[in-house]
Design a protein around this nucleic acid. Structure first.
Lengths: 351, 351
DNA sequence: CATATAGATGGAAGCGTTTCCATTTGTTGC
DNA sequence: GCAACAAATGGAAACGCTTCCATCTATATG
């Protein structure tokens, strides 16, 4: 209700001085600052977000675009981003676009471009060059997590290499009959991840001279329940059974373990399972996995963005456009192979 | 880059007409509207969010305050809210306050009050009267989901009654040795939920003349892994074992089932388990539960809010303040008892 | 054909800040 | 005690829209 004018009157100062005092700018005497703060406090003054953004060109607001909020990876990233942003005094605008291309379109077009965001973090989203250019044209830094964004900064793990690592772990244990549980082909359109991980698996198998059986390459929707259903089919095949499964996510690995248990298969004695993620439930299932600290990734992405912003990019072009073009860095986030008890030598090696 | 002025020039119209044309207002000839739209399209004009909000007092932005984004219930609500808002052309600002009171304070004070939100949805958050008053003072509708918000509209399930229902389901099956897995006492401070559900359990037991054993009232943090650990302690007690467990959430029920399996207990033959939520994983575990459709709750809350907003509340007081005070309705969301295979008659009844 | 009426249009006044710039006040050195 | 300079201050111009209000243009009515 109270505007800055009221505060100025009450403090016996000008609007300009009050504005400077409250936003912590220089060139304000200690006395005036105290006066202004006191008056603002008494009146319960809270600066209007829109007015200040309009005038300063700074939003203190970062957009986060996600394909889902339910799956572990995404909610973890969200958590990391959210915490970092909140602590820095930034708002987080969430665009949960789901897997519907239509929604994704409208988000990009109608929402992101409206100059209301200082920056955008896109998770596992494959944007077209055009889309990226549009965003960059509005002078908004973008960072992509786990997705390939040509022209924008990205933060990701070495999906292909880590898939090889996981597969090799199984191979080194002596497994030869290894199945791979990957993401749904449908998901592959917008998010190329599943394909990349699968490629890593295939490469590792080839390198080891092991056969890649088509019927042992199954897919699911990245959820526990989806993987459970798929794994039942795999393990229920009348024919020969794999001795190990590499699942493209921990959730799918857990679904596999549950399916195995239901079939009376012991993990790891009868079936080894390795996942990829670092899901909190991994402990309960003794799941061997590759921890990618999704939450940390989110936090780091947010921090990088904030640094860029603090360096003085934003504005609507009023600030001296920094001569340096927005250097699009591509960082690899560190991961860790966590060996628990879901992987062991294959049964044949025992008997 | 292009402003409305540029569009007006290009279309050969006035700024005022262009504004009306683009925002779909009345009193614009079809011809002018077409002209304006074409010019806007050609110039790639996107109205400035802040300028339009500042001028109109309308934000098209709803805030959502959550204690967590990881737990099923909250991410489900988030999903529902997000989808509804996105479809309506509203932005969603997410405040994931976690369980730290400090963060919660700052969110309420520094963020919510800055006139940048048209409305606020608070999930499972217990706000003090003071806090609610502050929010209402800024003329922002609030709706609370699953929390008691005196003065604000709320949407919730009958936690106490449903706990009785769940407990009675077990009692009717013939169970007398029933344990209850509730939320951590720490959580109870900010979110009273666990206590309410526990009270329902106790009441049902009392009504049936059954003993409520303190050592069978255990707690966990609402996660699968947390409940798994707690349930192991419960089931590992050297003494007598309960024949049924009522968990205050599906995630905790699943943790209990996993613990039971690890102990060689069959569900439901040796141990019946009932949860509460409607978690997607329920199917995999054959979990009997009370489905509360969290996603639907989120969607409904958002829809209610949008209706209120469309009815013309917002503005900064420039619109005729509707004579009717913001009627604080208190709705009960419908639920459904889903009986799967995790509950059955107790073992004693069989032998 | 003149007049009343509804619809379309444009000028201009906000919306509530931030920040530029000119001015005033206070400080330091000689 | 005065010049020279830095720090503090206030006036006013943006920021980019929405919307009130007055004006103008068609259409319908007598």
């Amino acid at each position: 209700m109270a505007g800055i004018k009221d505060v100025a009157d009450r403090a016996g100062l000008s609007i300009a001085t009050v504005s400077r005092a409250l936003s912590g700018k220089a060139n304000v005497s200690a006395k005036s600052r105290k006066l202004a703060k006191a008056a603002a406090e008494e009146l319960g003054f809270v600066p209007s977000y829109h007015a200040s953004s309009l005038a300063s060109g700074r939003n203190h607001n970062v957009g986060l675009v996600l394909p889902s909020v339910h799956r572990w990876y995404f909610s973890s990233v969200l958590e990391g981003v959210s915490e970092t942003l909140l602590d820095a005094g930034y708002d987080l605008t969430l665009y949960n676009v789901g897997d519907q291309p239509a929604r994704r379109q409208s988000v990009l077009k109608d929402f992101l471009l409206r100059k209301r965001l200082d920056a955008v973090i896109a998770v596992a989203l494959v944007l077209t060059d055009d889309e990226i250019q549009q965003l960059l044209a509005v002078h908004r830094p973008i960072v992509g997590i786990g997705g390939a964004l040509a022209g924008a900064s990205t933060l990701r793990i070495n999906d292909s290499g880590l898939s090889r690592l996981a597969t090799n772990h199984l191979i080194q244990l002596g497994h030869t009959r290894i199945a791979h549980l990957t993401g749904d082909p449908a998901l592959n359109q917008e998010f190329k991840l599943p394909g990349i991980r699968q490629a890593g698996f295939v490469a590792a198998m080839k390198d080891a001279g092991l056969p890649v059986r088509p019927e042992w390459q199954i897919s699911a929707d990245f959820t526990i329940q989806g993987a459970y259903a798929s794994a039942r089919k795999l393990l229920g095949l009348g024919t020969e059974r794999p001795t190990a499964v590499f699942a493209a996510s921990d959730e799918m690995a857990i679904g596999t373990i549950l399916a195995a248990r239901d079939f009376g298969l012991r993990v790891p004695e009868d079936l080894s399972v390795i996942g990829m993620d670092g899901h909190e439930l991994g402990d309960v299932f003794g799941l061997t996995t590759i921890d990618q600290d999704a939450r940390g990734q989110g936090a780091l992405a947010a921090r990088l963005l904030l640094e860029t912003l603090d360096a003085g990019i934003p504005g609507d072009g009023r600030e001296a456009r920094s001569a340096a073009p927005p250097t699009a860095t591509d960082r690899e986030y560190p991961t860790e192979l966590i060996i628990r008890t879901s992987t062991a030598v294959p049964p044949s090696a025992l008997s």
